[in-house]
Simulated scan of single mutants.
Amino acid sequence: MPELPEVETTRRGLAPHLEGHRVDSVKVRQRQLRWVVEKGLEKCIVGAKILRLERRAKYLLVHTERGCAIWHLGMSGSLRLVGAEVPPEKHDHIDWALDSGLILRYRDPRRFGALLWTESDPTSHQLLAHLGPEPLSDNFSGDYLFAVSRGRRQSVKTLIMDGRIVVGVGNIYASESLFLAGIRPDRIAGTISRARYQRLADAIRQVLARAIEQGGTTLRDFIGGDGQPGYFAQELNVYGRTGLPCPRCGRPVRDMVLGQRNTFFCRNCQR
């Protein structure tokens, strides 16, 4: 599933080719995505100038002079730019034809993604209004995590994976961040000190920033390519490494299930 770094990489790859251009036409071949694509959406978008691309959590926000399109890539979705001569394939559900001659094409084999439209502030949309702060923003800190964790009996891993607490810390990034911070993933969130939460906040920032950087350096061509960014798999310390030596102490990496998700950690390095 595309996570925050992959969506941010998508935004960075597409922005130079979309911003400042107009949408000449919209073709929706499949409306039955996670939520039905409204039939009036085409009229809202056609002729509109794209002002800027932003990201909120795992949502891509395409701001136009008329309103904002909200994309979610779901489990298997991708956006790429192709020439007008490139025929759509089976899972290519939506095309935006741009005045540059390129087509923004949405592919989604599993159809768990979505395309929505709003003429209001997109951050107040019902899908985005409840979200926590961005982990790379000034609103996220160790002090913030310490404050929201007080009295909570859940594990620290499930806390930081809760999008109402902080967005974008998916399963891989949670395991890797907790390893860097030296915190066991099953520690009760409300028992962790302010200082340790500061280390965790710093680790989350480091892991996500590195994932975005690697996505950028391994980025496949968004024009004519498959539109898929490079995933953060090159420097994993514990995720998916059960039984392999910990890169710090050499002892075997362990795994457990927390919140119905596989979790990886070092029993020696994480307390």
Rank of each mutant, 00 (worst) to 15 (best):
I172G: 06
I103E: 03
G47S: 02
R80T: 07
R196F: 08
R267N: 15
C246R: 03
R12S: 08
I103Y: 04
L116A: 09
K27T: 14
R107N: 14
L145F: 06
R196G: 04
T191Y: 04
E3C: 09
A57D: 00
Y144Q: 06
A203M: 04
I103F: 05
C266Y: 05
L98H: 06
C266F: 04
K27C: 13
G101I: 01
R184W: 08
V253Q: 01
L145D: 07
L18H: 04
L127I: 10
R196I: 10
C266L: 00
L98G: 03
R56L: 12
I204V: 14
V148E: 00
W71N: 00
G168K: 05
L51C: 11
Q126H: 08
T218V: 06
I188N: 09
R31Y: 07
R80G: 06
Y59A: 11
T9H: 04
D121G: 11
H17P: 08
R29L: 13
L51K: 15
I172M: 04
E119D: 13
S149R: 07
V46Q: 14
H93V: 13
V169D: 00
L180E: 15
L41F: 06
I160T: 02
H72N: 09
K39C: 05
L41I: 15
R261N: 02
G13P: 09
I50R: 04
R110I: 03
G113C: 12
F264E: 00
I45D: 08
S193A: 03
Q214H: 10
R210Y: 00
S25K: 14
P133A: 04
D24N: 15
F232S: 09
H72A: 05
Y144K: 10
V7Q: 03
R251C: 07
L200M: 01
R187Y: 00
E38T: 14
I50L: 13
G243I: 04
P2Y: 00
W96Y: 14
A201I: 06
G113M: 09
M75T: 06
I188C: 08
E65Q: 12
R56Q: 06
L41V: 10
R80S: 12
L51F: 03
L98F: 02
C249V: 10
D202R: 14
A147Q: 15
I192G: 03
H63M: 07
V46R: 14
N262Q: 11
E89L: 15
D202S: 13
K49H: 04
